[in-house]
Write a protein that binds this DNA or RNA. Structure first.
Ligand SMILES: [Mn+2]
Ligand SMILES: [Mn+2]
Ligand SMILES: [Mn+2]
Ligand SMILES: [Mn+2]
Lengths: 151, 151
DNA sequence: CGTCAAAGTTTGCCTAGGCTACAAATCCTC
DNA sequence: GAGGATTTGTAGCCTAGGCAAACTTTGACG
């Protein structure tokens, strides 16, 4: 067998610890799904339907890119969509969308409570939201509570 | 000319505003460079040299992946490296490394000041650090100052 | 109802960033 | 100064996620 016995993924005295870089790559693997699902839910709530063209405009990508991504989400059982028709979330998709929306809201409120200007907070939240452990999210919520909804 | 006049990248009444999703994609395009450069500087400081095998172990990837990434950093003028020799930062590379390290330290201290456990903070910081506007970074620094270096 | 603009899809291309398998160079160690 | 383990590099493969261009479908409306 040509495979080496010991891989070099982790130092030995480190084998039980999470590698932060590995965690970040995992976060990024989920990021696109989360953003799409949250956005689709949002569009349905606010405009009645989720169309390729609107998703593309919001995300700043071309429609072809959205079509391809939707195909993947369909494969993963997170959305349903018939050709030339708009997009719907499965129950599984709805769960992820809700969680994503919740994270997003928490980060946004947290940054604002911290004193960051609304518009900047909205930009930064979009990236940060995918990299938060439950403990960090909890700390952010605690902080929001403690703040007297400042002026 | 087959190209459509109006692209759909931005809604019209929105054209001067930054699209958060576009910003996140830009952040991610810089992320790998920042992490590599920070790590290379770290290894040089702590062990005397930056070797492919050690970079791979730290990042949790295979050596072949590192070799390819280093080739890209070389192309971009951020590192120098002769075949079978260890890796060095250019001045440009050092600048980015220092900035990355600074961001990293700020986020880490901030999360700890917020009450997040050290180990969790170290994991989350690795992802968050790439998504921070100057204003948010400044707010974090303010918060760190205000905290009495709590027990 | 026919036309045509808007929306959606398909195809083919590209880069980044992973991987394995194998080849080559380096460098301990005796 | 061999020889073998370690390290580095190369080649080829894969997926994700972008793009443009061309094609197809839908549906509004005159
Ligand atoms: Mn996001
Ligand atoms: Mn990220
Ligand atoms: Mn990082
Ligand atoms: Mn870092």
């Amino acid at each position: 067998m040509p495979l080496q016995e010991k891989d070099t993924y982790q130092e030995k005295d480190d084998s039980s610890r999470i590698n932060p870089f590995v965690r970040v790559r995992e976060d990024h693997a989920n990021e696109l799904s989360e953003d799409y699902l949250e956005l689709i839910e949002d569009l349905i709530d606010r405009t009645g339907e989720a169309r390729t063209v609107d998703i593309a405009a919001k995300l700043g990508v071309r429609q072809a890119t959205v079509t391809k991504a939707i195909a993947r989400l369909k494969r993963e059982g997170l959305v349903t969509a018939a050709p030339y028709r708009s997009i719907f979330l499965t129950n599984e998709g709805k769960k992820i969308a809700s969680r994503a929306r919740e994270h997003h809201r928490t980060v946004l409120e947290f940054l604002i409570a911290l004193g960051v200007q609304q518009e900047v907070a909205e930009i930064d939240a979009e990236g940060i939201e995918h990299h938060l452990s439950p403990a960090t999210l909890a700390a952010m919520q605690r902080f929001i509570q403690q703040q007297p909804a400042a002026a």
